[in-house]
Design a protein around this nucleic acid. Structure first.
Lengths: 139, 139
DNA sequence: ACGAAGTTTTGGACTTTGTCAAAATCCCTG
DNA sequence: CAGGGATTTTGACAAAGTCCAAAACTTCGT
């Protein structure tokens, strides 16, 4: 995130210390949970309420400034990188999450559209597997 | 599910009334939550504890007899249909969930494997959109 | 069938993740 | 720099699951 304050203004959001700090924390820690981000913000601001972290994350997500992903068995994760149609790779045993560029062009399996009369607007892909570290442990 | 009892025995699971009833409920109501299934079971058995429903669903899921999906903003959903690599279509506003046969052959975007050294075992795809009923309401 | 041994089921407390509402505070415009 | 509207804080609450110990049940060998 180049300039958090400018980004907020571009979206008509009043600039507050909490918002700037949360944005920076998301930038610094991609795929972090709300609680982890709160910790990150506290390192910068000294303190922030749990509710504010949620408020800010919700506003930023609604405005499309950040993106929320919610893999099974995990709290919601937030990330900076948006609008580039990438997907995620999640370790089943430790939860480690990595970005994966879409394997099938732009809107991946979006070919499935118009099924059941639904109007599809996004195809979310999560690759489940085992990360290198966890592969070693299991042996 | 042809024969719940036989299925349980095949997997070395003691046959209990609760397990049979839960299996039947999952069969009858694809994409139902644990609570909804509990209600279904109560219609059949009279009563079952919440914990037993979770125990049974967990055991069945571990054994691969049923499958659990966990779309964002929803409790876990359970289904009968397994091993056929199908995906899901979820309505953003009402949560209605439908099956979708994979658009891209067998293991869809599994081509992304070996990324980051992960050993990938599943590619989960969720199509997000708006179902016909909710499209009407919005207009 | 019967009883012992091992599982399941129960019921209640607890945890995690997140939301609601009201009061206090802050940001931005004039 | 004052005022109004938005934001943050605080504390209570809700949903979905899990943990635990005790009671009840299944299963298996005889």
């Amino acid at each position: 995130m180049r300039d958090p304050e400018a980004t907020l203004r571009q979206h008509d959001l009043p600039v507050t210390a909490q918002r700037v700090a949360v944005l920076r924390a998301v930038s610094r820690h991609p795929h972090a949970t709300a609680d982890e981000l709160a910790e990150g913000v506290r390192g910068e601001l000294g303190s922030i309420s749990r509710q504010s972290v949620y408020n800010v994350l919700n506003v930023l997500t609604d405005k499309g400034i950040i993106r929320r992903i919610q893999p099974a068995d995990s709290a919601a994760l937030y990330e900076d990188r948006i609008g580039d149609n990438h997907h995620h790779l999640v370790c089943r045993s430790c939860g480690r999450t990595e970005d994966v560029n879409c394997a099938v062009g732009e809107a991946p399996c979006l070919k499935a559209h118009s099924h059941h009369g639904f109007k599809i607007d996004e195809a979310e892909v999560i690759y489940w597997g085992t990360c290198p570290a966890c592969q070693k442990k299991r042996r």
